[in-house]
């Protein structure tokens, strides 16, 4: 993957670059603020960017705004936002345009390098990677508690993994069950929530998110 990193803390920026390089990816640029990120993406056309939300100049949501611009101007570049907090409003703003090629993870997820790079690869390939925390909060904000309550514990786990952007095979692997079992769970979830069944990963995630965040 060709990656552009935008993170204002030098320690983390350099470590991320080193880690990705060690794993055989190409770090085209590593920048420290939102404007430099826009310029770097326009110049290098990377497969994916890793973007800190809180960056100069305003130290609020500069990274998020840059991410939305990048998704609009360079559809070929995936955006993985990462932040020390999960904010529902950030998640909804990011997902307003669709769930393809976007991700939103807590920073501490880089403590599992392998999973982090997997998520990055998913986003680069046009998929989705949402932090479980994001999913929990979206579910809370959407106030669809009665239907969520009708799901079994296992089905809720599958729903969370689905919203994170995982395929049935990946879900099966992480829950240590067969792919057929997952398919059954997915069908049950779509049934209980009244959603149209779908095989397409992005439409699947989008359906779940729309559902979770419906007022």
């Amino acid at each position: 993957m060709r990656v552009v990193i935008a993170e204002d803390a030098a320690v983390l920026r350099e470590l991320l670059a080193q880690m990705l390089t060690m794993r055989g990816h190409e770090v085209a640029a590593a920048v420290a603020d939102a404007d430099a990120l826009r310029a770097a993406v326009a110049e290098h056309r990377p497969d994916v960017t890793v973007v800190d939300i809180r960056m100069p100049p305003t130290h609020t949501d500069d990274g998020l705004r840059a991410a939305i611009d990048i998704r609009r101007d360079h559809p070929g570049t995936g955006v993985l936002l990462f932040s020390q907090y999960v904010e529902t409003k950030y998640a909804t703003r990011l997902l307003a345009e669709g769930s393809a090629g976007v991700g939103y993870l807590l920073k501490e997820r880089v403590a599992n390098v392998a999973e982090f790079t997997d998520a990055l690869a998913r986003v680069a390939a046009g998929g989705t990677a949402l932090d479980p925390e994001v999913v929990t909060q979206l579910a809370g904000a959407g106030r669809r508690t009665e239907e969520i309550a009708s799901l079994t514990g296992r089905e809720r786990e599958v729903l969370t993994l689905m919203a994170e952007g995982r395929s049935n095979a990946a879900i099966a692997q992480s829950l240590h069950v067969s792919a057929g079992t997952v398919e059954k769970h997915v069908a049950a979830i779509f049934g209980k929530l009244g959603l149209p069944a779908s095989e397409d990963q992005n439409r699947r995630v989008l359906a779940v998110i729309r559902y979770l965040h419906r007022d």
């Binding site: 803390a9 983390l12 470590l15 991320l16 020390q84 920073k107 880089v110 390098v113």
Partner: peptide, 24 residues
């Protein structure tokens, strides 16, 4: 809060990440 965000939290993220790289 800002100092924690820009200081200790960043260091800890970097530490956890380095440790995972060592583990690998």
């Amino acid at each position: 809060e800002r100092d924690l965000h820009d200081g200790a939290q960043v260091r800890l993220v970097a530490l956890a990440m380095s440790l995972d790289m060592v583990r690998e």
